[in-house]
Each structure stands twice: as C-alpha cells, then as structure tokens.
C-alpha cells in the first residue's frame, strides 16, 4: 500500500495537533514515527484511518482517499486496547474474522494465539486478561485478516521482554511477507529494530525524516553492551578492553557485569559470547542498548525547541 500525507493539518479547536505534515511511504516499506508525548503521532494515524477529518491537506492510500474498502486491508493495533469483556478470545477473534470476511479465521486465530502464548486462554473471558495479554490479543486481532498495511501505535507497551521479542518477530515476519508497516513509539530501540525509515515529529511538525543512518548523521553513536559473567576473574577486563570492537569498558563488580561500548554493528552477541569464552568467561546475560537514535532524537527535539524559543 502506498501512502501519501500531503500538507496534512489537523486542529482541535485552535490547537494544531498536526501541522502541514508531508510524507510518502512506498508499498512494502516500514516507517517509524518517533516523537515525545503529545507530538501528534496518534492523531496522524487516526486521521489516516478516517477517524478524524483533516482540516486541510489530505491522505491518499494507493492514490485514493481512505474509505471502508481500504480500511478492510489495514490492520490496526491501537494505543489503548478496548475489548468486549464478556466474550472469550476465540469468540472475539471470530467476530472480527467475520467482519473482515476472513475465510479461515479460526485457523489463523489459533496459529497467532499459539505464537503469542495465548492458546491456553482462547476460551477464557477477555475481562479476566492481564494488560499484556490484552495487548497481545489486540495484535492478533490486527493481524487476523493479513492486512496490507499494519498500523502499530505503541505496540509493545505493557509487554514483558519476552512478549516484546515475540511481537517484534511477528511484526518483522509480516513485513517480510510484504506488509507495509507504520509504527509509532517512544521506545526507540524498538523502532530501530523493526523499521528502515523514521520520522521525528514534535508539536505536530515532522522535524526530520529519512533512513536511520541519515537521522544519525553527525551524531556520535555507539552500542552499549551489558555482559554479565558467571565469575569475575581479575584478568577479564584487560582482555575485553584489548578487543578490537571495544571503545570503552566499565566494571560493575557487584553484578558481575561489564559495560562495553562498541561501534554499532562491529560485534554481535554471539561473537561477544565466543570471545569471552576464549578468555575463560562464561556469559550469563547479554544485553545491547543502542543509545544512538535516542541521542539523535533528544538532540533534534532540543534543537527544535531552541529554534522555537
């Protein structure tokens, strides 16, 4: 699905929530909206769905304004999940399956529920679901009709790390199958892992837009690894510091952990583990955080703030 935002403006009373937004997404692309609270991400997405009418400008989907026909091909995971509490998960998905005229809805529901570890809850009332379970069910609902465009507004909020991983894999899989993705989030690492292009939006304005590399241009970036070892031999630090990927290393003896800063992409988790093993270290936990995009995001937001002052 090709999507074009043309000079999109949406006001609430006199307040401008989205301000002359221009953006064009090719079919099969993955795009991330990044921006602070109240930036206008949700408003933009809801206008795309026709829930809000633009005050000026327009949104075209495959060259057409949005209508019931195009909405049938869109899957939505909303920011806030609301359900019919008196239905079971299975009934709920069956209802949406019939609404979207999905031929094998029951089968698809079963497969997706299993993927997200909800299969055992298929016949439980949704009212008894936890926040994270509801979020997952919302994701299953968004995928039940194999949409051509998937709109995800904060898809991983409320999920535990394992759930985040499962959902991320599911989304990446959909994207590989050709689904166009639009994700809005302030969890930057999440966006970075799933999309190829990001737009930074603040106060309704699209401040910067481009590939992640573009956005990061000129920004000092690094990946930060936290590696926890079974034991903490005294010579370990020297060995890790000597490694060619290491920019900087810090010791956190209480947690048996080293914090290693590396150039992005210079080392993968597996390689790091093997390197450690060669030096007699057994890795118990490995965690990477890319603070690059985060830094860029904060910097761009700050710059725009200063421009406004």
């Amino acid at each position: 699905m090709k999507i074009e935002f043309k000079d999109l403006t949406k006001k609430f009373g006199t307040f401008t929530a989205v301000d002359k937004l221009n953006l064009s997404l090719e079919s099969g692309e993955s795009f991330g909206f990044l921006g602070p609270n109240g930036a206008g991400k949700t408003t933009t997405l809801l206008t795309l769905l026709g829930i809000y009418q633009p005050d000026s400008g327009q949104i075209l989907i495959d060259g057409q304004p949005v209508n019931a026909g195009t909405r049938r091909k869109i899957g939505v995971v909303a920011e806030y999940q609301t359900f019919y509490d008196e239905m079971t998960a299975r009934e709920y998905l069956d209802f949406f399956g019939r609404l979207y005229q999905v031929a094998d809805a029951q089968n698809k529901a079963k497969v997706l529920l299993e993927r997200l570890q909800l299969a055992d809850w298929a016949d439980a009332l949704i009212g008894n679901f936890s926040t994270g379970m509801k979020k997952k069910l919302g994701i299953v609902r968004g995928l039940i009709h194999s949409p051509e465009l998937l709109i995800l507004d904060e898809p991983v909020s409320g999920l535990d790390p394992f759930g985040i991983m499962q959902v991320r894999e599911l989304i990446q899989e959909q994207h590989k199958l050709g689904t166009t993705l639009i994700i809005s989030s302030h969890v930057l690492s999440e966006i970075e892992k799933t999309v190829s292009r990001v737009g930074i939006i603040s106060k309704g304005k699209l401040l910067k837009e481009g590939s992640i590399a573009d956005i990061l241009g000129g920004q000092k970036t690094f990946s930060q690894w936290q590696v926890q070892f079974l034991e903490f031999p005294p010579n370990a630090k020297a060995a890790l510091a000597a490694a060619d990927f290491t920019l900087n290393i810090e010791e956190m003896p209480e947690q048996n952990t080293y914090q290693i800063q590396a150039n992005p992409g210079s080392v993968e988790g597996g390689a790091l583990g093997r390197f450690a093993l060669q030096h007699g270290l057994i890795t118990t936990q490995l965690h990477r955080q890319d603070i690059s995009l985060e830094a860029a995001f904060i910097k761009i937001s700050e710059e725009s703030l200063q421009n406004l002052v």
């Binding site: 769905l49 829930i51 019931a68 909405r71 049938r72 869109i74 939505v76 909303a78 609301t82 609404l99």
Partner: peptide, 14 residues
C-alpha cells in the same frame, strides 16, 4: 464511551 466502537470503525464498519 469505552472505545470498542472506534475499533470497529478502524475496519470496514461505518
């Protein structure tokens, strides 16, 4: 009130 209607309107329902 609850927003379940909004969810229907995201899809083919008007």
């Amino acid at each position: 009130d609850k927003g379940t209607l909004e969810l229907l309107f995201y899809g083919p329902v008007e």
